[in-house]
Structure formats: structure tokens, C-alpha cells
Amino acid sequence: MTTTLGNVASLAARAGGSVVRQVKAVVDPAPARPAGTDHSASGWLVVTVVGEPSQIDTDRLPVPLAEFGDQLEVLVRAAPGDKGTELAARLRDRPSGSTLARLTGSDPQADLRSALRRAKQLIEVGEVLAVDPAPHGDRTPTPGGMLLEMWTRVAPKAGVR
């Protein structure tokens, strides 16, 4: 790699989101849709978990979902093709989410997505997988690193869009 090309590569890498942005630009029809519609129009968020629908007691949901109390509507149905059970949840009161809201961590839809993922892990594995604290060396502060840290904070909740 020549130095000039190397510099371009490292600049791009520091920008962090270049690959995601580029792929999204190719495949995502988002600009053609109204703003703030990263989620399905109905507001339902759904995960598929192993097991039969009868194994999920909607009156005794896993803690991450139970914490929402009666703010939540919940539906359970069998997934086609023996793929397990579809666990669907929807907030009764839904503010419109935005990318900014998600990145600043105040998007209830994203919180619900994260809760569904944790509920799925509790049902399937019995505990929520932890990655931190993971051993690492010196986190030299760079703009790319900070952006990535922000991403990884929201990554359990929803996509980075």
C-alpha cells in the first residue's frame, strides 16, 4: 500500500461509519420513505425464540419485558416451519423515534428492542451474555473510536442507521 493510499484508508477508517453508510446507500430505500420510519409501521417488534408458544406465559414475562409493565402489548404465536415461537411486543404509547434519539439513548422503541433480545437470551440460554469488562489496552481517544463507542452502546438496542 502506498503512503497516499494508506492515508486515505486510515482517514476513512477513522470516519468509522463509511462501510455502513456505503452499504446503506446501495440497498436502503430510506430516502424514499418519510423520516423516522426505521421500525415497522405497526410498531410491533418481534423476536423468534426456541420452544412452543405454550412455554411462554405472557402473565409472567422475562424481567426485561416485565419491567415495561402495562405499557406493553404482547403477542405469542408459533413460527412457521418449526422455527420456534414468535414473541411480539408493542408499546401502547409510541413517540416517533429518530436517529438522534437512538444515539443519545432515549428511544423507547430501541429500549424495547434491547429488552426483547435480553428476554430471548433468558428464554433460550438462561442468562444474558456479558462482554464487558473485556481486557483491552490503552483507548487512545480518536473521533472514530468515540463514534464506535457510541455505536456499541446502542448496538444491543437497534441497528446503527
Binding site: V19, V20, V23, K24, V27, R117, K120, Q121, E124, V125, L129, A130, V131, W151, T152, V154, A155, P156, K157, A158, G159, V160, R161
Partner: peptide
Amino acid sequence: CDNGNPNPGLTEALWG
């Protein structure tokens, strides 16, 4: 695996 990556949002954004 659905449960092996605590940061699934990154690759969801990239690959769906």
C-alpha cells in the same frame, strides 16, 4: 448464532 454477539445492531445495519 442469535446469542453470540452482544452488539448485533452493527451488523444488522450493515447486512440486514
